[in-house]
C-alpha cells in the first residue's frame, strides 16, 4: 500500500515538473519576422511595368530596398511619399536603388498608381507571388534592405519612413 503511494507521488512530481517547465520556458524568437536577416537575399527576377526584365543579382555593388506593395493596401499608399523622397535623395549618388514588388495586384492599377504618385524605380508585376513566398512575405507593406554584397541587412514590417530607412542604412553600412 505504501509503495503505491510512493509511485503516485513520483508520477505527480513528474507531471508537476513537466507543467513547470512548459509554463516557465521563454518562447522562442519570432522567426517569422527575422529569419531572412543575415542570409543571402533570395533571387528576384521579373518584368517591370514598362516591360523590362529586372534581376536583383544584377544590382550587386549597390544597396537595394526591396519593397513589397499593393495599391489596395492603405499603409502602402501612406508610405509611398517616404519611399519617393528616399529614392530621390539617393538618385545622384546612385548608391541605393529601390525596387517594388507589386503583390496580388493588377499591373494596370500599379502603373496608374506610380504615374499619379511618382516613383521612377522598377516595379515588378510578374511572378510576384513566387517572389513573395521566396521572401516569406506575410502581409504588405514589407521592405528589406539588401547590402551591396547580396545579404539581407534589415527587414521593415509596415510602412517605411525616410528618416528610419536612412538610419537603418547608416547602421547597416557601419558608417
Amino acid at each position: 500500500m505504501r509503495s503505491v503511494r510512493v509511485k503516485a507521488l513520483l508520477v505527480g512530481l513528474m507531471l508537476l515538473t513537466l507543467v513547470g517547465v512548459l509554463a516557465t520556458r521563454e518562447s522562442g524568437p519570432d522567426r517569422m519576422t527575422t529569419h531572412l536577416v543575415g542570409q543571402g537575399a533570395p533571387p528576384i527576377e521579373g518584368t517591370t511595368t514598362s516591360g523590362e526584365a529586372w534581376r536583383l543579382d544584377l544590382q550587386r555593388g549597390r544597396w537595394v530596398v526591396v519593397n513589397f506593395f499593393s495599391t489596395t493596401c492603405v499603409p502602402c499608399v501612406r508610405e509611398h511619399p517616404e519611399l519617393v523622397a528616399f529614392a530621390e535623395a539617393h538618385a545622384e549618388a546612385d548608391d541605393v536603388r529601390v525596387v517594388t514588388v507589386a503583390f496580388a495586384d493588377s499591373p494596370a492599377a500599379v502603373e496608374e498608381f506610380f504615374r499619379s504618385n511618382g516613383g521612377d524605380w522598377p516595379v515588378l508585376v510578374t511572378d510576384t507571388g513566387r517572389i513573395a513566398v521566396d521572401w516569406g512575405v506575410v502581409a504588405v507593406p514589407e521592405s528589406y534592405l539588401v547590402s551591396s554584397a547580396g545579404f539581407v541587412a534589415a527587414k521593415i514590417i509596415g510602412g517605411v519612413v525616410q528618416a528610419d530607412l536612412e538610419a537603418m542604412l547608416v547602421e547597416a553600412r557601419g558608417s
Binding site: H35, Q39, A41
Partner: peptide
C-alpha cells in the same frame, strides 16, 4: 530544422555561401 539543407534545399544554402564569400 529551418535552414538545414539535409533534405536537398540547395538554392538557399548556396545563396548564403556566395554572399558570405563576397565579403
Amino acid at each position: 530544422g529551418a535552414g538545414e539543407t539535409g533534405s536537398g534545399e540547395i538554392r538557399s544554402s548556396t545563396r548564403t555561401l556566395l554572399a558570405q564569400a563576397g565579403v
